[in-house]
C-alpha cells in the first residue's frame, strides 16, 4: 500500500516536520517508556482515594467506582498526549537568547510548525499511552466503562484533536509573551498547576458546584480533557456538539490573538537576545 503523500506542497512540508519529530522521538524511547510507567501515580491516586470513598457508598455525583476509574484512565491518557507544555518554554527560551530566528527563516508558518511538531510527538506517544491505559485497566482490574455510540466517539475524537490544537496555540501564545515580558517561567509553572485542575485531570469537574461548572463551560479547558473523557464513558452526550463549536471558536479566537500579538511585538525581537 502506498503511503499517503499530500499533493499540496504546503501540507507536504508540515507532514515532513511531523515525520522528523516522530523519528527524533525514537532516540528517547526509554523516556517514553518511563513516562508511560509513571502515569500509574494518577491511576493509583484514583484507585486508592475513590476505592476508600466508594467503600462507604455506591455513587458519587452520578459516578460508580468503575465509571470513576474509567474516567481517570481516559483523562490520564489524554493528559499524557498533551505534550505542548514544552512549546512555550522553547519559544520563550529562544526569544530570550536570540535564536528564535531559526524559526523565522523557515518557509513555514511558525504556529503551523509547532502544530506539526506536536502532531509528530503525539503520534509517537499514542501507542505507548494506549498500552499504558490497557495495562492499568488489567492490573487494577477495572470494569472499563466505554460508550458504544460511534457518533459520540467521533465527536470525542474531534474534540480531542481541537483540544490538542488549542493547547499548542495557547502555549505558543504564552511563549510569545516573552517579547513583552522578559521572564515568564514562573507564570508558566503556575499555569501548569491551574490547567491540571480546570481540565479535570485531578478530579472530575462534575464534583464542583453547578455555578462553577456553568462558568467553566464558557472556557476552553472544560472541553480539552474533561468533556471528551465524559463522552467516552457515556456521559454528557447532549454537550458534544456545543462543545465542538465552543472549542472551534476558542481556536479561531486564539489564532487571531496570536497573529495580532506577533504583528505588534515581532519588531521587539532583534535576534541578539534579551
Amino acid at each position: 500500500m502506498k503511503p499517503f503523500i499530500p499533493k499540496n506542497p504546503r501540507f507536504r512540508k508540515y507532514r515532513e516536520i511531523s515525520a522528523i519529530y516522530l523519528k527524533s522521538q525514537l532516540a528517547w524511547r526509554a523516556d517514553a517508556v518511563f513516562q508511560m510507567l509513571f502515569t500509574v501515580t494518577k491511576i493509583l491516586f484514583a484507585y486508592l482515594l475513590w476505592g476508600m470513598v466508594f467503600s462507604q457508598r455506591d455513587t458519587v455525583s452520578g459516578f460508580t467506582l468503575d465509571g470513576m476509574l474509567s474516567y481517570y484512565i481516559i483523562s490520564s491518557f489524554l493528559s499524557q498526549l498533551e505534550l505542548s507544555d514544552g512549546v512555550s518554554g522553547e519559544v520563550s527560551e529562544r526569544i530570550r537568547n536570540g535564536t528564535f530566528s531559526k524559526y523565522m527563516v523557515l518557509p513555514v508558518n511558525i504556529p503551523g510548525y509547532f502544530t506539526a511538531m506536536e502532531a509528530g510527538c503525539v503520534l509517537f506517544y499514542l501507542g505507548f499511552d494506549l498500552a499504558a491505559a490497557l495495562i492499568w485497566i488489567f492490573i487494577f482490574r477495572i470494569r472499563f466503562v466505554f460508550t458504544h455510540s460511534p457518533l459520540i466517539i467521533l465527536c470525542a475524537l474531534l474534540m480531542i484533536i481541537l483540544g490538542l490544537l488549542f493547547m499548542v496555540q495557547l502555549n505558543y501564545y504564552l511563549g510569545l509573551l516573552t517579547l513583552k515580558y522578559e521572564e515568564i517561567g514562573t507564570f508558566l509553572m503556575i499555569k501548569s498547576n491551574l490547567v491540571a485542575l480546570i481540565t479535570g485531570s485531578i478530579v472530575p469537574l462534575a464534583l464542583f458546584p453547578e455555578a462553577v461548572l456553568r462558568g467553566m463551560k464558557l472556557l476552553p479547558f472544560y472541553y480539552i480533557t474533561y468533556l471528551p473523557s465524559m463522552l467516552l464513558t457515556g456521559r454528557c452526550r447532549e454537550e458534544a456538539v456545543t462543545g465542538i463549536l465552543i472549542l472551534c471558536l476558542w481556536c479561531l479566537a486564539l489564532g487571531g490573538l496570536i497573529r495580532i500579538t506577533w504583528k505588534k511585538y515581532r519588531v521587539k525581537y532583534d535576534g541578539a537576545g534579551i
Binding site: 482515594l49 458519587v60 455525583s61 485542575l197 485531578i202 478530579v203 464534583l207
Partner: peptide
Amino acid sequence: VQLLVFRAVYANVDR
C-alpha cells in the same frame, strides 16, 4: 489547587 480539589471532593462525600 489541592485545597480546591478536596473542597470539591468533600462537597460530595462526608468522610
